[in-house]
Amino acid sequence: MEVRTIKVFTTVDNINLHTQVVDMSMTYGQQFGPTYLDGADVTKIKPHNSHEGKTFYVLPNDDTLRVEAFEYYHTTDPSFLGRYMSALNHTKKWKYPQVNGLTSIKWADNNCYLATALLTLQQIELKFNPPALQDAYYRARAGEAANFCALILAYCNKTVGELGDVRETMSYLFQHANLDSCKRVLNVVCKTCGQQQTTLKGVEAVMYMGTLSYEQFKKGVQIPCTCGKQATKYLVQQESPFVMMSAPPAQYELKHGTFTCASEYTGNYQCGHYKHITSKETLYCIDGALLTKSSEYKGPITDVFYKENSYTTTIK
């Protein structure tokens, strides 16, 4: 009895394709271990004539594949690729409408935090270190965002349907971005203890939790000093293409032309909904596939993004 075979390709990165001759009487799992086709788990399936010449994702289970996976995804987590594939199996079914010149995501599976993050990423200057993220990001900007969303979920250790947080998501993504040249110098002034300067680099240099107003941050924000008295913390120097200011959701007025974009969060910790506000020729609110415009805006804002380049204080 002759062994019926077909020729397929296996890959971990969709760049390096490895030619395989597979036995049609055995499952993919018996031949390769966990195997995925377009995100779908085909591990328990036997090869079919229609699979001839198709590319299958496999887990990096030998040295060659491990090197290829690390170079593309910059992670050695053995569960990463499987999590990416199972997320992709959902995100490829989502709709990605162009809204006001940006790629958004039609609401499904509690994905409003991903839509808000995706919209924000198209408006701030950011370059990702893992080629996987950078490639998928370019495709997302062009309207094909399924891979990018699935990668975000995998890097953030999230599953489809789980509630997510924009600030946490951005923080994970910033860790995989090139923020080497970003720098922030802060000064804390206390009447009792004097003053202390701190220099922050990388992710810490672009994120701040405690106030939404970048102007206020430049002037000074009140913080408790270690001595128990009130101290003032203010920005001395900022070198970065953008800054992200966050605070627990509270009524906040966004003035046209003073910011790049913002995240609105309605609801409580267990259950809520994100919308995205962007400042173009007027203010726009993007909620999944829905767009509304207004000249002014007041609502429960939790993150505001500002364009920056270089700032030095005039406070002496």
Score class of each variant (00 low, 15 high):
Tyr28Arg: 07
Asn187Tyr: 04
Arg4Pro: 11
Val185Ala: 02
Val42Asn: 10
Ala262Cys: 02
Lys158Ser: 06
Ala145Trp: 02
Ala146Thr: 02
Phe242Ala: 08
Phe174Trp: 07
Tyr96Thr: 06
Thr27Gln: 12
Arg141Trp: 08
Thr55Asp: 04
Thr10Ile: 12
Ile105Lys: 03
Asn187Phe: 06
Gln216Tyr: 07
Asp23Ala: 11
Ala40Trp: 12
Tyr57Val: 10
Gly228Ala: 02
Thr226His: 13
Ala231Glu: 00
Val304Gly: 00
Lys298His: 13
Lys255Met: 09
Ala115Trp: 01
Ala145Asn: 03
Asp63Ile: 04
Thr169Phe: 08
Leu283Glu: 05
His176Gln: 11
Tyr269Glu: 15
Leu186His: 05
Thr11Ser: 09
Leu179Ser: 08
Phe259Arg: 00
Trp107Lys: 04
Met26Lys: 13
Tyr138Asn: 12
Cys271Arg: 11
Tyr155Arg: 05
Glu68Phe: 06
Ile105Cys: 02
Thr278Arg: 06
Thr282Leu: 10
Ser246Asp: 06
Leu151Met: 05
Asn309Phe: 09
Tyr57Glu: 00
Lys7Gly: 10
Val166Met: 07
Cys149Pro: 05
Asp38Ser: 09
Lys106Val: 13
Ala108Met: 04
Tyr284Pro: 03
Val99Asp: 00
Thr260Arg: 01
Asn147Trp: 07
Gln216Arg: 09
Lys201Thr: 14
Leu235Asp: 01
Ala142Pro: 04
Ile45Phe: 15
Gly299Ala: 10
Cys149His: 02
Ser213Asn: 13
Lys54Leu: 14
Arg141Ile: 06
Ala231Asn: 03
Gly53Met: 14
Lys316Arg: 15
Gln270Tyr: 15
Ile15Ala: 12
Pro224Ser: 12
Gln175Thr: 07
Ala205Phe: 01
Met24Ala: 14
Glu71Cys: 09
Tyr36His: 05
Cys285Pro: 06
Ala145Ile: 02
Ile6His: 07
Asp13Asn: 15
His256Asp: 07
Gly161Asp: 07
Glu52Tyr: 12
Thr43Glu: 02
Pro78Glu: 15
Lys307Met: 10
Ala146Ser: 11
Asn178Cys: 09
Lys275Glu: 00
Leu151Thr: 03
Glu71Phe: 05
Pro248Tyr: 15
Lys191Val: 09
Arg184Val: 05
Cys227Lys: 01
Ala145Pro: 11
Glu168Asp: 03
Val3His: 11
Leu121Gln: 08
Asn89Thr: 12
Pro241Cys: 03
Leu114Val: 15
Ser246Arg: 03
Gly53Val: 08
Met85Arg: 05
